[in-house]
Simulated scan of single mutants.
Amino acid sequence: MPRWRALPEELDPEVREFTEQLRRLVERSGLSIGAVADRTGYSKTSWERYLGGRLLPPLGAAEALAEATGTDVVHLSTMWELAERAWSRSEMRHDSTVESARIARARAALGEFGPPQAAPETAAPQAAPHSARAGGRPGAVISEPLCHEVARRAAATEENPAAGPAGAAGPAAAAGPSGPAPRPPVPDSPRPPDYRAKAIPADAPAPRRRAALFVTGVVGALLVVAAIVLLLGVGDGAGGGPGSAPPLSSPSVVLPAGVKCTGAECSGKDPEAMGCGGGRATTAGSATVGTSYVEVRYSRVCGAAWARITQAAPGDAVRIDAAADGGVPARSESGKVVRDADGYTPMVAVSGPGKATACAALTSGPEGCTVARAASAPAG
């Protein structure tokens, strides 16, 4: 069964060539995907996507692979730049295609409803013999009871001009001591336009007041939220910067999910069981001893380091030595390869990546120790 799956057919030729080059580097090195992930600091899942052509690796991942496999970094970086440009062009074409498809679907959906149809004209209702039209507007028919009320108020105004229009005082003002006055007979002709206009109530300003109160409430809530965010932001800046390593003993540090120790608490414990390995660790020093590869693995979040050996044989020994630091005496932990070709030691607490050295002693005779180097940023 082949190790690699076929690359996607729609892959750009330059991206395909770059991905095939990455596969050849991994093949020549003899490393597994897990070993590539450990040496580069990028997760195994990420490398499966990179080598499968589903995702273009970042430049840092390509450079880390070149360093782990002994390849010219400049040559691989040049190929990455060409692949990155091709990848960006492909994404732009894809975005344009998706946008065109969305527009076509929207137009099709709108076309299903068809052009707006005109509402059928309805015949104006026939007015009763005593009905009148308000203000001469067509279609605004006043019902017969309303005509009676308008006529009654008009008659009351004519009898008492000082009282003003009856519509201003309301129905209760026109009622006498012994109840409402009897309705006068409705004349055959409609009342003057001014009385009909007063029968239609004016718009009330209440909706505007409600809208203003709503806007004021929203602005006040936003101000409260902004004040809370500012207060929380000030509190977050009280500690050290995000790049500072935890001290050798820091019980008050809030650890990320899955990390179970920090500083001196990690000494003598398994890095994988404590959540310090994987993407939370970087290589702080490395060396080739015989046919094996030994390195110092350092976890900033745990404040600890350990030694790891790969491409080894059962019985090969590995050791991590931490120099004395800040009154803390020198520390050392050892391990052996039992069955597989890989092995690692328990952790020792350190205050930085350059405070520890890993050494290996092979059963075949060669021995050697690592050379310190700057730890690369761990993969997200």
Rank of each mutant, 00 (worst) to 15 (best):
P161V: 07
D321Y: 12
A68V: 02
P171W: 08
E367A: 15
P353T: 05
A211V: 11
D38F: 07
P129E: 15
P171N: 06
G243N: 11
R133F: 14
T69V: 11
P165Q: 01
A372C: 01
G352L: 07
A132P: 00
G52F: 15
A202H: 12
T283Y: 00
S90M: 08
V15S: 12
E9H: 15
T122C: 09
T69W: 00
V224G: 08
V348H: 02
V296A: 08
R16N: 00
A118P: 05
P145D: 02
E9A: 14
Y50K: 10
Y50N: 05
P271C: 12
T97V: 05
G327P: 12
E272L: 15
E9D: 13
A155T: 12
A108K: 08
Y293S: 07
V229G: 15
R152E: 12
T288A: 07
A104F: 08
R39Y: 05
I309A: 12
A132N: 00
D321N: 13
E144Y: 15
T157W: 12
D321G: 06
V150D: 03
L82R: 12
T262L: 09
A173S: 10
P57S: 03
R191T: 04
P247M: 09
S32L: 10
S46C: 02
A124Y: 14
A119K: 13
P246T: 10
P378T: 07
G114Y: 02
A132Y: 09
P184T: 06
W306T: 05
R39N: 08
L362C: 05
